[in-house]
Computed example of a mutant assay.
Amino acid sequence: MKPIQIIITEDDFVSAMVLKKVLQASSYEIIGIATTGEQTLDMLTTKRPDVILMDITLGGELDGITTTEIINARYGFPVIYISGHSDHATLEKVVGTNPGAYVTKPYDERELYMVIELTVSRYRREQDMQRYSQELEEKVKARTRALDKVNAELKQALAREQELNDLKTKIVLNVSHGFKTPLTSILSSSQLISKYAEFDHELAPKFQRHAARIEKAVQNLNNMLNGMLLIGKSDEKKLQALRQQIHMPTFISELLEMVKLAHNFQVQISVNQQHVPEFIYSDLDLMHQICDNLLSNALKYSPEGGIVKLDLGEREIACLSRSRIGESGSPSASRTSFSNGFSAPRMSD
């Protein structure tokens, strides 16, 4: 272990040499002897002692107390006073410099060793704590810089994602609106074909059949576009529920007719509306979209000959799909829920 390094500041050279021999006998390293405060300060420009032994009465303009104040301000090295002064006024001045200890002359060697060891031990711990604090502060700063960089990158990524979402929404809305006009024209044309097919003509049945196919395809595309528009409005946070009075028997009849026209699945549709009043207040477009999506998905994933049950509750819409006949020839207990507890707009006023 590195020996404790000491600077002695003592105006009496003989006393300084005696003190040096006493300390060296205990394996302390004396790295300098000064007789004035000015000499001590000059030494500290090149030396780094562990402790300074300071007499109060010194030659030169600076006494020991003033020299210690300067050392505290510039370097922070611990100072132990060794002096013959023990009056109250001197002690008050000494306390103001926050010394490591105060030893009166004549000193006891064992007491001096103990004071030096305690003072240096405390100083080294303080230095270690200071270094640890600085290292910790640097780590915190480095981590903060790293977090700031990550946050900046995350903000940029979120901004780019928002731009892409906005672009996607605009494309969906533009494409959907763009298709609406030609689909309306196609639908009008198919209706005209159906009207002309009512006249006596040998090809009239074929006209009607093809016109029905066109009208069915147009309605399917129109439903898809309505769904895209609904998603686009939802992404833009422009979706608003417009409550209006809905006659439920008419709504259900039109819904089933539209779904059956759009799908050719050999699946039975059962509707339970016992808990729904004849009239409700809700958004008609959202109701159509919700029920159409539920039924379409249920029909798509139901086996031929299966049953799709649409339950309309006062505050809930659910659609269940199951097989009519299981492998054993008896009704299958297996069922798949496509929307269990789907939360819809409030369906009663």
Rank of each mutant, 00 (worst) to 15 (best):
R74Q: 15
A152L: 12
D108H: 09
A146H: 08
Y132H: 11
S83L: 08
G76C: 12
P78T: 04
L112P: 06
D128F: 09
L91M: 15
N151V: 04
H88I: 15
Q134E: 15
D87L: 09
A34E: 09
L136S: 13
V150S: 10
Y113D: 14
Q39P: 01
T57K: 15
D108Q: 12
I71R: 01
K93R: 15
T119K: 07
E38V: 01
L147V: 13
V51Q: 07
T35A: 14
K105T: 05
A146Y: 06
G96M: 14
Y132P: 00
T35Y: 01
I80C: 07
V120S: 07
E137C: 10
K149A: 14
M43R: 04
F77K: 03
D50E: 13
N151H: 06
T45Q: 15
R122F: 07
I52P: 10
E92L: 14
P99C: 11
G64V: 04
R122G: 12
I56L: 09
I30L: 05
R143S: 12
Y28I: 09
M54F: 04
T36E: 05
Q39G: 01
L154K: 11
R74T: 13
R122M: 12
D128A: 14
R110Q: 13
E109F: 04
Q39A: 13
R124P: 00
T144P: 00
V150F: 05
T35I: 09
I80S: 10
V140S: 03
P99W: 05
Q130G: 02
M43W: 09
P49G: 07
A73S: 14
G59A: 09
L62K: 10
K93F: 03
K47P: 00
T68L: 10
Y113F: 14
L62I: 03
M129K: 12
M43G: 00
Q127M: 15
R145P: 00
D55R: 08
I116P: 08
Q39Y: 01
I65T: 02
Y123C: 02
L136I: 04
G84M: 10
T119F: 07
D87C: 07
S27H: 14
G96P: 00
Q130E: 14
R48E: 15
R145T: 12
Y81F: 15
V140H: 09
N72V: 03
E137H: 11
L154G: 01
A34F: 05
T35G: 15
E153Y: 01
E38I: 01
D87S: 12
G32T: 04
V95H: 06
A146T: 12
K149I: 05
G76F: 13
V94C: 02
I30N: 05
